[in-house]
Amino acid sequence: MAGDLGLWGIPVAIVGGAIRVSTPFLFVSLGEVLTERSGRINLGLEGTLVFGAMAGYGTAVLTGSAWAGVLVAALAGVVFGLVHGIICSLPKVNDIAVGIAMMLLGSGLAFYFGKPFIQPTAPDLPAIALGGWSDLPQVQAALNVNVLFLIGLALALVMAWMFRSTKVGLTLRVVGDSTDAARAMGLRPAVIRTLATAAGGAFAGVGGAYLSLYYPGSWNEAISSGQGLMAVALVIFARWNPVACFWAALLFGGAGALGPALQSVGVTKGYYLFYAAPYVLTLGVLIATSSTTRALSGAPGELSITK
């Protein structure tokens, strides 16, 4: 049975927490990077995350397959992304306002359709045990890595490569940086942005499926507690760089594990303060990396918040 790790429990818990909690942050922020690099903001990803969680869980309950759940969550995300993208392609539509509407719509629909799925238990997504080298059960538990986490890591690397060295990446960047330049090149910015938003929605849907199908692994209406919104903020923090998104997501996940971990080793005073750690961390890093001479570096030129 588990021995007492003492203070060593804290780093183990933070690493474990980072791996367990970061995946939804990672998927939503990667989706948002894709969308924002094309010049549009989708604040609705919180709603997509919640709907994805519900759709994924519901599908897994009905079909008995967790992967079918992930697929349906991704498809639901595509639909939400398309709706957002198409509405925003209309003239004089503000993407932030539409995003907020989509966020409320997504959560509302998820609550409505999710009612019958609060009780049943769905199959979990598989995890890969990477902690077999250690005989400590705590380390083994911390290194139970879900497949979606690894897929997310691969996606971050592929996206970074895509933006840097492929035609698709170049197209997205042109559209995101200058509508006029894109038009001059014969591209259709509205279509490209809509497709990017749809793909971004699919990512967020998968993030939701991770929440309901792996960790914490059940569907209820408070499942997300704002993680989708935090992930959108995390994109700014990561300067629109997919690999930085990966590290930022890990950081947020690990910081979130700090509070319970400290309490479990006997540091019991002031847990509300430790629970604020991720937010304090964000503020700290943003201040440390801010510059008096440059605007937000890495921000796509057509983004409505930076224009």
Partner: peptide, 15 residues
């Protein structure tokens, strides 16, 4: 949900 799961894991880690 997420914090409850983290707290539960932390308790299991603590034995």
């Amino acid at each position: 949900a997420v914090k409850e799961a983290e707290a539960t894991n932390a308790l299991c880690d603590a034995g």
